[in-house]
Nucleic acid binder design. Structure first.
Lengths: 242, 242
DNA sequence: CGACGCTTTGACACAACTCAACAACCGTGG
DNA sequence: CCACGGTTGTTGAGTTGTGTCAAAGCGTCG
C-alpha cells in the first residue's frame, strides 16, 4: 500500500475505490480542517446535536454509540483510521448518535456545507463517498445480524475476526495479532452483553485454544477454528470496486 | 401530501428532501424500469449476487435479510412503498443481503450503471440519494440498538411504534392503527427472538392494554404508555431536510 | 499510601429458548 | 358442501444462556 502519495487517510481510502484526479484530491484535502488531538474519553458529537459536522479519524480508536433512556448504551461501530464518522448527520437534521474517543486520537473535522459544495462540483467524489457510506452500512448490518442471531461466543468471535481484517487492511496488525485497547465494558456495550459475560466468553475462547485477549493485545490462535465457530464471511469488507 | 405531481413514489420521497428540477425528475423516472408484479414469497436478490441492481417498491411489503450458516436468519429491514432496496449493492462488489416479497408487490428494478451515470449528470440527485441512504442507515442503527439493548417487550413495542410512524408518513395508516401482514415468525426474525416468544410478548402487550395485533391489523391502544415502555424517539424518521 | 478502574470468579435469578401438543384459520379439491 | 393438509397462532413444562449481585485481585496514578 502506498503511504506517501496522499496527504490524508481518507483520500487514500477513497482512491482504492475510484482513482481520483488531482483536482478531486485537492478538493478532498481542502475540506478537512487541520488535524486536532483529542483526549481519551472526550466526546466529539452528542446525539441530537445539529452541527452538521463530520470527522475523519487519522489515528487512535473511537466509537459511535447511542445512549438509551434506561441507562444502557449500544456501541454502533468502532471507526478506525481512514474512516469517517457522522457523514449521516451532514444530511439528516440532527446527529442520530454520539461519538467519542476511546484513546488519545487525531481527527479532522469536516464541515457539512463544504462536503455538499464539493460533491456538486465533483460528482465522482459524491460517488466515492456513497461507496464509503455503503461499506459502513454493510458493517452495521453485519453487526445487527451478529447481535440478533448469534450466541455470545459466536458474536465475540465474529467481532474480533472482523476487527482483525479491518486492522490488517490498514496496516495496523495481522489477521492473527493486533493491538486492541477495548476494555471488557466497552466490548459488552458493542456486543449487546454484560461486561461480566464478556469476561466469561473470553475465558471460554481462551480455554478452547481459539484466541486470547491480554493487556491490550489480541492473538488469534486458531483462525480456521474461529471462522468455523461463527461462520465468518468477510466479503463485506472488500476494498476493491465492483 | 401531493400524489399526482410525481410519477413515482421515489421521486415524491426525494422531493421532500430537496426540490428537484423537471430535468432531474425526468432522469429519475427514466432509470426506473416498468413496474412489475412480484408474487408473495418470491426472492428478488440473493446474497452474494453481483447483478448491481436496486429496486424501488411501489406497493406491497418486502423484507431484506441475511441467512446465517447456522440455519437462522435476521431480517434487516422492511422496505415500504417509496423505499429503495439494494442501493448498497450498486457500489459494493456483491449484494450483502437477500431481499424477498412478503406480499404480492409491485416494484421497479433500477440498473446500477444508470444510477451512476444519472448521478454524474445531476449531482443534486446524488445528494438526494445519499440523504435517502442516510435515513435508511439511521433505521438500521436504531434496529441494532433495539436488539442489542432492549428486552423482548421493549423491542417489540419500539418496532411497532416505528412502523406506525413510517406507515402514517406515507399515508398507509395512522399512528394508532394500520394493516400489517407480518406473521409472528417474520416478526421473530426481525426482532432477534423466537416466534413462540413473540407470541408471548404480544400477549403481554395485549394484557397490559397497550396494543393488539389481530388478523393483520395492528391497533395501538395506549400510545403514551408504549412510548414510555420503550423510550421511543422517532427523530431519525424525519422527512424534512436539515 | 489510598483511590480508582479493569478483570476475574462464584452463587443465584430470570429472560428467552426448546420441545411438544393443540386450536384456529385458509385455500384446495373431492 | 365438507374433508383435508398446511400454515399460523396459542399454551404449558422444563432447560439453558445470560444478567444480577457480591467480593476480591491487580495495576496504575495521583
Amino acid at each position: 500500500m502506498v503511504h506517501t502519495r496522499f496527504d490524508s487517510v481518507l483520500a487514500r481510502k477513497l482512491h482504492t475505490f475510484l482513482p481520483l484526479t488531482p483536482d478531486e484530491l485537492k478538493c478532498l484535502s481542502e475540506i478537512q480542517a487541520t488535524p486536532l488531538t483529542v483526549k481519551r474519553g472526550r466526546h466529539l458529537v452528542r446525539e441530537g446535536q445539529t452541527g452538521h459536522k463530520a470527522f475523519v479519524i487519522h489515528a487512535g480508536w473511537a466509537c459511535s454509540y447511542k445512549d438509551l433512556p434506561n441507562g444502557t448504551r449500544q456501541i454502533i461501530s468502532f471507526p478506525l483510521p481512514g474512516d469517517c464518522v457522522g457523514l449521516r448527520s451532514v444530511l439528516l437534521r440532527t446527529a442520530d448518535h454520539s461519538f467519542s474517543a476511546l484513546t488519545d486520537s487525531i481527527v479532522s473535522s469536516v464541515d457539512g456545507g463544504h462536503v455538499l459544495r464539493c460533491v456538486s462540483e465533483f460528482p465522482r467524489l459524491g460517488m466515492a463517498l456513497l461507496w464509503a457510506a455503503s461499506r459502513d452500512e454493510a458493517m452495521v448490518v453485519e453487526h445487527l445480524v451478529n447481535i440478533g442471531r448469534r450466541t455470545a461466543i459466536e458474536r465475540t468471535a465474529h467481532f474480533f475476526l472482523e476487527l482483525a481484517d479491518r486492522l490488517s487492511i490498514i496496516g495496523l496488525g495481522t489477521p492473527e495479532e493486533f493491538e486492541c485497547p477495548l476494555s471488557q465494558t466497552v466490548l459488552a456495550d458493542a456486543l449487546g452483553l454484560t461486561a461480566i459475560h464478556v469476561n466469561r466468553t473470553l475465558r471460554e475462547l481462551r480455554e478452547q485454544g481459539l484466541m486470547t485477549v491480554q493487556k491490550g493485545k489480541v492473538q488469534i490462535k486458531d483462525l480456521a477454528g474461529l471462522r468455523r465457530l461463527c461462520g465468518f464471511q468477510g466479503g463485506y469488507l472488500d476494498t476493491s470496486d465492483g
